[in-house]
Structure formats: C-alpha cells, structure tokens
Design a protein around this nucleic acid. Structure first.
Lengths: 339, 339
DNA sequence: CTGAAAGCGCTTACAG
DNA sequence: CTGAAAGCGCTTACAG
C-alpha cells in the first residue's frame, strides 16, 4: 500500500529505527544520515501513519467536542459555529485535531463520550454546555480524562476547568439599565432551565429586582417550553396581564427577533411601548429597525479559552483546575427607551 | 494502564485471539466460551482500543469534514451547522465519527487534507463547498481517497460524487416569479464569484432575463466584495441609478435582512417600493415584517446526502460517482408584491 | 552514532 | 472450536 518507514529504511540503507529518529529529529543522528534519509523520504513521498504513531505514543492529538443534542433552534443559533471557531483556532495552533460528537439523544452522546475515552480516540474533551445533573459531566469527573466545559458546572465547579461569563452579574447590569430607564415591569424570556446559564441569569434577574425594591412576579417569566410550543401565545399572554411588561429581556437575539414579530402583530411598538434586549449580539442585530440592544458574551473567546484550558490539562497531567471568566457587555441600541 | 484484550484473555483462560473473535461475534466460537468471555469483559470493564483496531483494519471509521476558511459572516450563517447536522445524522447512523478541519487559510486547509489522507486519519472526506480552480479538489481527485462534495465541481463534475441544488433552475424560477409580478429591473446581490453556486445562480439570473426579453444590465449586480466593504453604500448606489431596481434577489436571507435595514434608512418601503427575496429560508424569515420571501435549499438534506454518497464510496471501492440534486423551492411571503 | 528487538493493542490467516 | 504466530506501522529502551 502506502510507503512505510520500512520502505524508506531499505532505500536509504539504514534501519527503521534510524528513520524514526530522523522524523523525530533526534540529535544523536548524524547530519549526514539525516540528509540521506530525508532525501529518500522526499523521493518516495513518505508520510507518517498517525494511527501507528498514536498507538505507541498512547495519545491522539485530538480533542473531542460534545455538543448538546441539537434542537432545531439551537442549531440555527450562531453560538455553536462561533464557539467552534474559537476552539478551532486554539486547537490548530497547538496542532490538535477536532473530533465531533454526532449523537442525537443524551443516551447516544453518553455512549460516544465513553467510546472517545475508553476507545482512546481523543486526548481530552470539551463539553459545550453545562446542565443540571448531567450524567456526562459526572462520567467525565470520574474518568480521569482531561476535559473543560463552556459554562459553570452546577456542582463541584472548583474541581473543573471551565470558562463562563459572569451571567449573574451581566444580567443584573442589564436589569439595572432597564430600571434606570424607568422600567418596573420587566418580562424575562428564559432559556432551558436545565442549563446552568439560564439559572444564573434568572438569579441575576431576581437579585436585581430585589435590590431595586421591585417585587418578583412569576407571571413575567416565560419559559423555554412555552416559547417553543407556541411563542405567539406565550407573548400574547404577557400583554393580557392587568399590568403588562414595559420591557422584555430575552436569552437570545434570535428569540428577540421572533418576539418583535409577535409584538408587531399585537400592534405593540418597540421601543415606544416596550423595550427589548437580547443576548449574543447577533451580526444582524445592529441592522434591525430599531437596532436591537444586546449583550455581547464573546462566544469566540469562550471557545478559545475552553480549548486553552483543556490543552493545559492535557499537557500537564497535574495542572490544577482553572476557571476563566470571559467578559460580557451590554451594547445599548435603539430597542430600549426610557419612560 | 487500561484493560486490554490480554487481561481479559488471562482472566477468562482463553487466548487473546478468542477474545478478539468474541468481540467480533465470530460464529465459530462456542456459545459457552462467548458467555465466559463476555462475562469477563463485563467484569473487568474491558473496552476495545480503537486505535489498535484501526491500525490493523487499515481504516478509521472517521469522516473528515473540510469547511471553507471562515469569514465572520460565513460562520454566522446557519448553513454550516445545518449541513453538519445532516452529515452528523448519516454518519452516526453508520457509526462513523466526524473529524473537522481547523485551518484558517487555504494553505493550512490543504495541508490538513494531505495529513488526513496520508496520515490515515480518515476514511474519506466531505468538501463543504465547491469553488473554481480549487487545489484541494484537485488533490482529492488525484489522491484516490473517497470524497464527496456539497456543490457541483467546476470541472470534471461527472467523475465526482456530489450533491447540489439545481441552482440555475431555482434562480430562473425566482426570476420568473418576479417577472410575473411585473418586475423588469431586478437587482442581484451575488455571493463570492469563486464559488460555483454563485456562478450558477448568476447564470440562472442571466438566462431568465434573456428568456423574458429583458436586457442584462451589470449595474444591477452587486458583488460580494462591495457588499462586505460597505454594504450600505453598495445598496445606496443601486437607488441612485436613473432607473433603480424594483426587486432585489440576495444570495442569503441574512444579507436580505441587512439590505432591508439599508432600505429603511433610504426610506424605501418593502414591498411597496421594492420586492426582496433571499435564499436559505432562515428560521426567522417568516417572523420578519413583512415576512421574507426565500428559497429553501434543504441544507440538512444536502449534508445528509453528501454523507450518504461518501459512505457509499467508502463501503464500495468501485462504486461509480453519483450526483444527487436536492430539491429547492421558493417560499412566497409578503416581501414581494406585484406592480 | 546506529541497529536489533520488543512492544503499543489489536486481527486474521494458518494449523490442528 | 481454539490457539500460536505474524503483522498493522510506528517508537524506544537497550546494546554496542
């Protein structure tokens, strides 16, 4: 089949061991021999077989990436490609490859993680999400396989290397911005409550109300399920309340766009009647009319740093777990107005 | 380290070869022995080492995915995650893993393709794009490595397995829809002209004009560079023409959204003054005001079928190249109006 | 400075 | 029905 180290050895009239050492640029090999061997490799078009090399080296130079099972909207969401781009740059820089999970259900994904680990397919894993009571996280903790997480683990966070935004803090900032504009009835369109990021943001929401002396009212919370089942109805209900909200915070710009559509149907004007803020600062948000106020959570950096953390653990077995907080900031645009 | 086939063999008091055969469920092994070995594997927590297995099997059960170097907008675009989802489902079904390119420049990507092939890291490759005079495509053609392409190759298409929409046809359909509505001056916001898909759509545009007896006017064509450099100016120029367009076809919904933003700045109403159509039928397009008319190109199917084609070639060395045309359809919505 | 040998963890003809 | 041996393509102590 392909040219092996043996073929090169024979042609160059040295032993396979010597060829291997030339590839590794071992200093104990004479320059003369190196020249000869390299020339032969060149001539024969030799290329090392990574599988064989990895088998003896007991490593793969590959990172496994585990993504949550893909609901349609999650996939339309630019989070995934952007975080992947960040990971990609870091991995490529350190000459690591990327291996992707393909499972659709939690069960399948779990099996893949086990296969990646036990089957020695990857040197470490990046978990692209953090959810409450996640079997996969538990498995990783016990496995001894290096891993890092995008998002704060719900339990045992100190023992894990992860990147995250200050979700409580940024949400409080968003809220105090709205309160500062004179809003008191603020609706909150939350992400899935099994995700820690959603819990943190809800916590920020509640703490902020508390500090502003506004009573929490569960009627202003719209959960993910209601939104997905019938978004139009969920938004409609908000505005049938005796005291409808004057501002809406959504967990994602795309959701904000959708909400804006429903508001137009209801003849509710943005920002005159209702202010609205999204998260993730989608590329289009600045082009909307009015431009959408949004929180930039620096998705690229989240990916980039998650990969860095993982590579740190892979390189140094006993590196202590580290946590990185990636900055986030509110971008004020026309979709919010004082009252 | 980990449990190997030898450990199992020793414990079960059989030879490693027998354990291997039990794993492969070889019918020549007695049920009794199988029971005993399986029990031991279970007890010891044995898991096969894929690297070792792949080395002897001379295959990897892994598919390499090559994406074009990621300009920011390309990554915001839902095309990538959606096509990946399609690939993912097919690959997972056949128990293949996904290995992703990480290179940023064409040079880096080329090197990765060579490494994937020569280093025996993948059994085949899916090229997620087709561009004119692409070195990577040339390399793949000569390599003998199974591959498939999303998009019609610019040359030697018959020799390649690929999936594509009928881009000429669907664009003609879009155009005749607009012409049927009474439009004669139709602008065309094109994708990058190094991509075959863009060439095909432009061809459809021109052919349609021709058939409708409308003279082609290059002033109505906005190319990718102008759009990226200063989209607002590019659109502004269209409407400074003595005869400004009454309809705009854009190569992507996100670009359409952007254009709509500029039109609002120019006090040009959609659809009253100008009709607009996008491609890719983004999840949000139906929520826009007015809802955006768009072409659904079935991105998921493109990915799914590209993976199927590749797996066909991997499984059967001498499978003839096959081409699959994935359907596409115009979804009429409020952003277009007769005149 | 270089080579022969053993081994990474598996599979698969070849024997019996 | 099962085992001993060779081999996938590489690396790395151990000798010399």
């Amino acid at each position: 089949m392909a040219i092996t180290i043996k073929d090169v050895a024979k042609q160059a009239e040295v032993s396979p061991a010597t060829v291997s050492r030339v590839i590794a640029d071992n200093p104990r090999i004479s320059e003369k021999t190196k020249q000869k061997v390299r020339e032969t490799m060149e001539r024969l078009g030799y290329y090392p077989n990574f599988q064989a090399r990895n088998l003896v080296a007991q490593k793969t130079r590959t990172i496994g990436i585990i993504m949550a099972n893909s609901t349609t909207l999650a996939f339309q969401n630019p989070f995934f490609p952007e975080v992947l781009r960040g990971i990609s740059v870091s991995a490529h820089h350190s000459q690591y490859g990327l291996y992707l999970s393909t499972g659709a259900t939690e069960e399948e994904i779990y099996d893949e993680v086990v296969a990646m680990h036990q089957g020695k397919q990857v040197d470490g894993i990046i978990l692209l999400y953090s959810r409450v009571g996640d079997r996969i996280m538990d498995y990783l903790m016990e496995s001894g396989l290096p891993f890092s997480v995008v998002g704060r683990p719900h339990t045992n966070a100190d023992a894990v290397s992860y990147v995250d935004n200050d979700n409580v803090g940024i949400t409080k900032h968003v809220m105090s911005y709205l309160v500062g504009l004179g809003h008191k009835r603020i609706a909150f369109i939350a992400g899935g409550m099994d995700f820690v990021v959603s819990l943190d943001r809800l916590k920020g929401y509640e703490e902020s109300l508390d500090e502003s002396g506004i009573t929490f009212d569960a009627q202003y919370i719209v959960n993910q399920d209601d939104m997905q089942k019938d978004g139009k109805q969920a938004i409609g209900r908000l505005f049938e309340l005796a005291e409808p909200p004057t501002a809406i915070v959504t967990h994602d710009d795309l959701v904000a766009y959708e909400v804006i559509g429903y508001l137009e149907d209801l003849q509710i004007r943005v920002p005159e009647d209702v202010s609205i803020i999204g998260f993730n600062n989608h590329a289009l948000s600045k082009h909307l009319k009015p431009p959408l106020c949004s929180v930039d959570i620096c998705i690229y950096e989240l990916g980039f740093e998650a990969a860095n953390l993982l590579l740190e653990k892979i390189t140094d077995e006993k590196a202590a777990p580290r946590q990185i907080t990636v900055s986030s900031r509110l971008i004020e645009r026309g979709s919010c107005q004082g009252r």
